[in-house]
Design a protein around this nucleic acid. Structure first.
Lengths: 297, 297
DNA sequence: AACCAACTTTGCAAAAATGCACAACAAAAT
DNA sequence: ATTTTGTTGTGCATTTTTGCAAAGTTGGTT
């Protein structure tokens, strides 16, 4: 009769409420949809309350279901906080660090740095999550983020480790690459699409009247680079990514208004974790040593 | 590496921290001590942190263990709150109600009332928790409390349903029972012991100089009653409990300063639950009908 | 010193939870 | 209209968790 519910049952209810379906909740929770089905039934039985209206389009929470989902969100925040604080007390210089960064930073700058770090700290494992989306460090989706940004999120701590210069690049074996005399508006351009969410470049291209000549858009910088290599057009790209590529030629000097900062960030609760500090110190130093590569000089 | 812990693991850590041992935590959680042992080991492994210093005489939490236990207490409050609110939405006039009351109230007043309630509401089940300790309605140890008190706890809601009169009783076949002329200080007395925590009666007995003649103390009113029946001495007892007992005789009028109120209480979140309202309305009415029995007239 | 109570730790059997595979249904896409 | 995709719901096998029983340690009581 008065069976108390499992605290994890609340998480299940929250997952169903947010996903709107058993299958979606199952994916989020990392279990089988059959398991979610049974857990929900069991929870409703223990509480003696209906938590979801079942419909053809999925599951919609009842007021009681919403109340539980809201509680579960507060509990989730509490659990993440205590997990971080416990993890933050970990003073062992060993274990795993999860880093999130972009594909371009990884390929063009960070990969050799990570390799060197692994060599010098064989007892610290790295897990790289390549994403162009901002990971949620509060939810411990990563321990460290290395990202271009003009301002870091307020709740994270870290340091600015460099400035990323960007310039126009063209395919090496084109006329523009050789003499650089064509007008911008006479060129074909490659640009970012809206999913890349690269607002400053959109603004710059519009301001220089070249977005009208942009007939090829990609949602990754690597895709933009490949298009330039294949002479589909010219594009603004980071110098660290392109200057070492023989098939690309820089056209003009770096564009000051498109320079951006490179940040190395973690959550405040993790700043004292030995292995995270070791990693961040190493990367900061290594990037400093490559500061000219980032600046494109 | 980044295994998230089960939310119920936090409850386990809190239980061990509060009990100081695996065995004590097991009793509190309602599981085997072997289970607690394994859950703790698994949690420490997932977090990569030591949560308790172990000894054969018990477990003492580390700072990380304390942090988790504190989080778990907050989560427990959150879970109890949402369980109450969900239970509070239960509008079905059926199901189970858990009542806590004293052994004397049950035997001398309430049992026939509960029987009548069951007859008139066959679909509502009663679970009676007999205790002289105050149950924690906030922690849902009971849904309804029926208790003598001069003032109810602030966080509960309810109503005062009667006044309990008390008087001196003696064994029926004694002289004092017949003529009532002996001085108090000439009698042998039966009294409550410190575990009964019956402060007002202690004060009254001291004020009338009869605690010096009290050589028999019990920690239950039923035990006091049995002693009076066996002519071990006289005692102050509730009128509802004794007036119907042929082996007991009242000596004098009820003692106004020892009158106490009878309260019918529940948690604010449960006040709208249909079966709880039905129960409380019924009991309030039935006790009102017995008001003279309570007053000893 | 002997006995008792309360504790931790572990191997094995039992119970519970879970995943798999399938059937059926419904909406979206073609 | 048909196909594809995504969903819910369920029986059975597998995996995981748990309880039981035992061995051993420690401290308190007699």
């Amino acid at each position: 009769m008065h069976n108390k519910i499992l605290w994890d049952d609340l998480k299940t209810v929250m997952a169903i409420a947010e996903a709107g379906s058993l299958s979606g909740a199952a994916r989020w929770l990392g279990v089988s949809h059959a398991t979610v089905f049974r857990r929900l039934g069991d929870t409703e039985s223990r509480l003696g309350a209906k938590l979801f209206e079942r419909s053809r389009t999925g599951y919609a929470p009842t007021p009681a279901g919403e109340d539980i989902a809201a509680s579960a969100r507060r509990i989730e925040a509490e659990v993440l906080g205590v997990e971080r604080r416990v993890a933050g007390r970990d003073l062992r210089p060993s274990g795993s660090v999860r880093i999130t960064t972009t594909d371009t930073l990884l390929a063009g700058l960070l990969s050799p740095i990570f390799t060197a770090f692994r060599r010098s700290h064989p007892e610290i494992f790295l897990e790289i999550a390549v994403s162009n989306q901002l990971f949620n460090l509060t939810k411990r989706e990563a321990d460290v983020a290395i990202r271009p940004s003009l301002a870091p999120p307020e709740m994270l701590v870290g340091r600015r480790i460099g400035t990323i210069a960007q310039a126009i690049y063209a395919c090496s074996n084109t006329q523009i690459a050789h003499d650089g005399t064509a007008e911008f508006s006479d060129l074909d351009w490659v640009g970012p699409d809206e999913r890349l969410a690269y607002r400053p470049l959109d603004v710059w291209m519009a301001g220089h009247g070249v977005d009208e000549r942009c007939h090829y858009r990609v949602d990754t910088l690597m895709g933009m680079l490949a298009a330039v290599r294949d002479d589909i057009g010219v594009a603004v790209l980071p110098c660290y990514l392109c200057d070492g590529d023989e098939r690309l030629a820089r056209v003009g000097e770096p564009i000051a208004e498109l320079a951006t900062d490179l940040w190395l960030l973690t959550h405040p609760d993790l700043r004292r974790v030995a292995r995270i500090r070791a990693f961040m110190d190493f990367v900061a130093q290594a990037v400093k040593e490559r500061r000219e590569q980032l600046l494109g000089v």
